[in-house]
Design a protein around this nucleic acid. Structure first.
Lengths: 206, 206
DNA sequence: GATGAAAGTCTACAGGTGTAGATAAAATGA
DNA sequence: TCATTTTATCTACACCTGTAGACTTTCATC
């Protein structure tokens, strides 16, 4: 046998380097959390993925909870489809839809933070950490960029739709979505997103 | 203090009744799974909620996994907002939106099956059970009731939106949604659902 | 009232969890 | 080359998990 099941550059007996080890643990944790959620991913498993021992994880991050918080913060900070500059695009609805469909098809990383959060939402503490990050990292940013009434609600609904699609397509693997023609989904979703972005119609009229 | 924390009719030393005990366990399990998910809810906890011992749970249901499957089947079978007869309504979009908003506000039971599934989606086995139920209990029913092209995809997207709102409003507790004016959310959501129901616009035009 | 079956509980096990403290190995300084 | 500090591991501990087998209590029927 070669080794255990190491990740990336962790297969060679990495030279003692605190920063690199920390990064390796963070990367392994990110992957493990995305796959199994907060409760499902064990510290020993995360450590093994980074090529170290479980105890080192706590030594670097204090506790599993703090490690999770840092992973969430890191993944949420990465640029996603929901960046402010994207909000300037004219056909933003289609952009969001297309990116979302593509990401949920390939399981790409830009929305990994969201996925981790969804997988971990059953844990109360993890949900709390995730909500904080979503609220400050996405919802408020989007809301301030949207014009018109009910901006916070509209922003939150956009995030809800993203979350819903991720749940059904990536987590549940609902065949109708998982095997759907990507372009067809984009055509269906684009006007929905656009509608929430514009916030037109009877949003003001009572 | 009265007793421990029993449920419903389990506070009085229930007369020995297999059917009633089974039902009590099922009810307790339903509540526990909805709150903590498959992994989060323990057999002992479920049993305590029904006023029995953990071993009795396995005696009645074989295993935790089988108990979960039965809970899911029961909650999914209950009538929800997504029933076929509702699909005949003219302003169905608004009906769905209003019901969804109301249910996610009060935490009412009609969508509890969905909530359980979302909380349990991190467990692979639980997700598999849930997907099967969703697919056959909702998605296919809806799809066959929808007219026009891409019916399966549109049905799945409606379910995705329901799931997304539940996640953000009930599980994450995103303030912008949790504290939003119900009627405002309905006004925002109704046209989105209606659009997926009608399936009009450029769905056919390429 | 005794008997047999049903309903429920007790004890226990093997495995897993996160984490604390002491210990070993490697790198860096003198 | 020796000493010191950093980096990483070993051992261990409480606790919790789902579940199996033996045991005790209650009920219904003869």
């Amino acid at each position: 046998m070669t080794k255990a099941t190491p990740i990336d550059a962790a297969d060679r007996p990495r030279r003692r380097d605190a920063a690199a080890t920390r990064a390796a643990i963070l990367a392994s944790a990110r992957r493990a959390f995305a796959e199994a959620g907060y409760d499902g991913a064990g510290v020993r498993e995360i450590a093994a993925g980074a090529g170290v021992t479980a105890m080192l994880v706590n030594r670097y991050f204090g506790s599993k909870e703090k490690l999770f918080a840092e992973v969430i913060a890191a993944t949420m900070a990465a640029p996603t489809i929901l960046t402010p500059q994207n909000l300037a695009s004219p056909r933003l609805g289609e952009t969001i839809a297309r990116t979302l469909v593509e990401i949920t098809r390939t399981g790409d990383t830009p929305l990994e933070g969201f996925l981790i959060m969804l997988h971990s939402a059953s844990s109360k503490r993890a949900a709390e950490i995730g909500r904080e990050q979503i609220e400050h990292g996405h919802q408020k940013t989007m809301a301030s960029a949207l014009r018109g009434a009910l901006a916070p609600e509209r922003a939150a609904l956009i995030l809800s739709m993203v979350a819903g699609i991720q749940v059904m397509r990536q987590m549940m693997g609902l065949p109708a979505l998982a095997k759907a023609e990507p372009e067809a989904l984009v055509k269906l979703l684009a006007p929905l997103f656009q509608q929430l972005i514009d916030g037109d119609t009877e949003a003001s009229g009572r």
